[in-house]
Design a protein around this nucleic acid. Structure first.
Length: 217
DNA sequence: AAGACATCTATCGGGATTCC
DNA sequence: GGAATCCCGATAGATGTCTT
């Protein structure tokens, strides 16, 4: 009895946590609120169900119908199929395959859809796509650092390192090579910064193959 | 150039079937 | 059992032609 109560509380806590996380990630279009599918790659993915809701289709199947009519127009980064654990796609249960659409894929669905809201949805998706792809890690111009001084100089390097790790330091992101170049730049910048601020430079050693969180350091 | 009309094309939506 | 896929009739929207 107590054990099952324990499980119930634990489950309720998980559900509450998931709902809070989802609420934070929810995207709103008109009076529709959708939580993008977390495919583990940091990108925004919509399920056919999401798109059917956004396009105000009565039948969820319409999105898949549209996709199959135009499947030759979709590239790999526009749509993918994943296996999820259950309908909530977040917690336990049976597994099933679900088709996902990226913001570009969703936009293409919107292009061929003729529902009254399709036009507005296309604009919304374009904005979303721009925001998604507009992640600006920026660049660290070592030569420009001489114009900065003191703490400001170190702040700029730390900010760049943080952004670089966040957007390029994740496994599977395909950007680890860029992250290594960033680390090299950060080393140079740090060396220069320390010279400018007249502090002795410790030996930074060889860069590891696996990246570490600059926050954790 | 703009409006009216006819024709064509693609989508919608419901139902049936297939597949995992 | 449910998602994916296929089929088909109705129809909205696109396109081309003609007239003013």
């Amino acid at each position: 009895m107590l054990a099952s109560l324990d499980r119930l509380i634990s489950y309720a806590a998980k559900v509450h946590f998931i709902e809070k996380v989802n609420a934070m990630k929810a995207l709103t279009f008109k009076n529709h609120s959708v939580v993008p599918f977390d495919n583990g790659d940091g990108k925004i993915w919509f399920t056919a169900e999401h798109l059917a809701d956004l396009l105000e289709y009565k039948d969820v199947k319409q999105v898949n119908k549209i996709f199959h009519r135009h499947k030759d127009e979709f590239t790999e980064n526009m749509t993918t199929k994943v296996t999820v654990s259950d309908k909530s796609m977040t917690y336990g249960g049976l597994s099933k395959e679900v088709r996902l659409f990226s913001t570009r894929g969703a936009h293409l669905i919107g292009m061929v859809s003729r529902t009254p809201v399709a036009k507005d949805l296309r604009i919304w998706l374009l904005d979303l796509s721009e925001k998604e792809s507009g992640i600006e890690v920026g660049c660290l111009e070592v030569s420009n650092l001489t114009q900065l001084a003191g703490q400001k100089l170190h702040d700029v390097i730390a900010a760049f390192d943080k952004k670089s790790f966040k957007h390029r330091g994740q496994k599977g992101s395909g950007l680890l090579a860029q992250r290594k170049r960033d680390i090299k730049t950060i080393k140079e910048a740090t060396k220069l910064a320390l010279q400018l601020t007249q502090i002795a430079i410790p030996d930074l050693g060889v860069f590891p193959d696996t990246d570490e969180d600059p926050e954790a350091a």
